[in-house]
Design a protein around this nucleic acid. Structure first.
Lengths: 360, 360
DNA sequence: GCTTGCATTGCAAACGTTGTCATTTGATAC
DNA sequence: GTATCAAATGACAACGTTTGCAATGCAAGC
């Protein structure tokens, strides 16, 4: 039996409720919204709410949004990765975003973006911004061409410096970029090792192509060079940001005739791997070797020994990103081509670093 | 709220663009949407797109939503917690949700929900569902009263069993509930220990009030009792789901005159804490004591020794949750009061369990 | 009885976009 | 030149809610 064309009785709107009670839609609308419900006589209000309940009414989000103007939602674009939430960076940044957005009454939408496919970047961004008022881009590194495309993008958005190619000058870029000061973070922790007396310092660096890895490397090298502690080439290892890379790196370094007495790692996971492999090899930390990480990951205090590392102000970063989006959304037209200062990272000195032993 | 009627000439809509080019809004709409842009002559399309670019046009999401019907977005409600993403449960579930939603062309919105305040639960849910087509509730445990309220809730939603009070019968509840089979997971891992010859088995249980903790406890006890291996009271410890709790628990247990030879933990973090404290106390795992966890957390394979544990099918769970929401959104009216079967968990046998030593 | 003021309700106009027509345009074939 | 047909465009009506304004009813004050 084809359904009678008149049907769709199940479509409950404010109008149906009004009709079934013999009142006007206006009254129903007023009764149902807390801000205006005082305008409706108490008994009628109850009547309406009961009927809404009975008819399983729920307001049409689109209509309300249209009527009220903007939607208080921003989109965070993250890489498509099974383990995305477990990374200190994304996990803490996202939590910060949720927090900051909630404080402003905003919602957060999380979208993944795969860059491998040959999808049009511009269109993908357009599509994402369609249902929200702004974008925080945290996904995979952008190409120069995509950055150019982004200059013409007219919805509020924010990048993090981590998504930029190494050779891009942030100040000259003219896009809203937020960042953590990798350079001085790396310098300060290298400086700590120097102060502890270490001169033979190895480096377990991150992957090629990562701007974060590059800047941390710069920071380490710069500080070491300035103090005449240039690491030997065989003390330097590059690999992905994971524990396995740390293991491989330290194993290679421990084979050297002359070993370093301290190691700077490009992030905590590398440091964990290194610490673990060193332990297995009978090399004690910090007695035989000092190790520093970067990120202050979730397990930095839980591991043995607790890791000396750099804490990135990710919740501040998130707070700022959300603030920029909300501001831009509230002042359309005058989009600020904002270039942020680096936000300072702080050193967390724990147990994995110690003074150089006298015998060395 | 009276909007600033004076200014806002810059309010670019499809209509303004049409006007400035002397074409009709329909044409602009068609030109701007990829699906229909082929209907517009190429040169005109370019003209329109350029103008849209120049005027910083971006489509009004509300209007589109209203016109098109539903919006393909679902909301995941999680507890308000700084470290939310680092928990294996939420991290993997959310990643699974993102994956499953993306596969269907849906977006995912993540909302936090604090239960401590005396906010009206119903209203909070209502508010959340306002901007999306369905809700997956993963936040803090619900009260009986809230469950009752939920029965009248007419937007698509799904709960997980973890959010229910211990004494609620899922089958009788009549709400869409998804769950992992804690019971048989716990049974299987207890059974493994028994097969390895262990009879003196301790329990490091989770917090009171957590349904997951309760069910795992049930599973452990049931299997042990059935095999005449009832644990002594002093071998049982309850605490929060974290490593500290595991440390405290094992320390208490190690003080007993007669020590157990194996320990079942309510989750991985507790197991980590226990393993760590045992190590510090000179008790070797698995030689002196076997330890099993629950969750197959991110570090279960990274720790030393690798942890024998139960892997929850969280991505399957997420996939199913998203599937139910999407289905419900596509078939409004016929909301299924769906009660899921438990989804089976699988045992991951690693290095933290070993056979009972002969001397024992 | 008439005004005044207040509480309550209805009317109708938006909000910006999209899809369904109907209409125009342009090209091709006769 | 006209008929034919497809492509391109325009006119217009929704979509469901909110809100300014007007209308009504009611009670109190004169």
């Amino acid at each position: 039996m084809p359904r009678p064309s008149s049907a769709r009785l199940d479509k409950t709107g404010i109008v149906q409720i009004a009709a079934s009670l013999g009142v006007s839609p206006s009254t129903v609308s007023r009764a149902l919204r807390p801000e205006t419900s005082h305008l409706v006589r108490a008994d009628r209000r109850k009547q309406i709410m009961d009927m809404a309940e009975k008819q399983h009414f729920s307001p049409n989000p689109g209509a309300r949004m249209l009527r009220k103007g903007a939607n208080a939602t921003l989109t965070v674009v993250v890489p498509f990765d099974e383990n995305i939430f477990f990374s200190e960076y994304y996990g803490r940044f996202l939590a910060g975003t949720l927090h900051a957005a909630a404080a402003r009454g905003w919602g957060v939408q999380i979208s993944t973006m795969r860059r491998s496919e040959n999808t049009n970047f511009r269109e993908a961004m357009q599509h994402m911004s369609l249902e929200s008022s702004g974008i925080i881009y945290l996904a995979e590194p952008l190409t120069h061409q995509e950055l150019e495309e982004l200059k013409g993008f007219r919805r509020p958005f924010v990048l993090t410096k981590s998504t930029l190619p190494e050779d891009v000058d942030v100040r000259a870029l003219g896009l809203p970029v937020l960042s953590v000061d990798n350079l001085s973070g790396a310098r300060s922790v290298a400086s700590l090792l120097l102060q502890l007396g270490h001169r033979r310092i190895g480096l377990l660096l991150g992957p090629e192509g990562s701007r974060d890895a590059h800047e941390r490397k710069q920071g380490y090298l710069e500080m070491l060079q300035k103090n005449g502690a240039v690491p030997r080439p065989e003390w330097i290892y590059s690999g992905p940001f994971n524990a396995e890379s740390g293991r491989a790196g330290i194993e290679k370094i421990l084979k050297c005739a002359e070993r370093p007495t301290a190691i700077c790692c490009a992030n905590d996971e590398i440091a964990f791997g290194a610490m673990h492999a060193a332990h297995l090899a009978g090399v004690r930390c910090p007695d035989d070797i000092s190790i520093v990480g970067f990120d202050d990951g979730h397990w930095a205090t839980a591991c043995q020994p607790a890791l000396t590392t750099i804490r990135q102000p990710l919740s501040d970063l998130a707070e700022r990103a959300v603030g920029l989006i909300v501001e831009a959304a509230n002042n359309p037209g005058q989009i600020r081509r904002f270039v942020s200062d680096d936000m300072p990272a702080s050193m967390m000195i724990r147990e994995s670093t110690g003074p150089l032993r006298r015998s060395e």
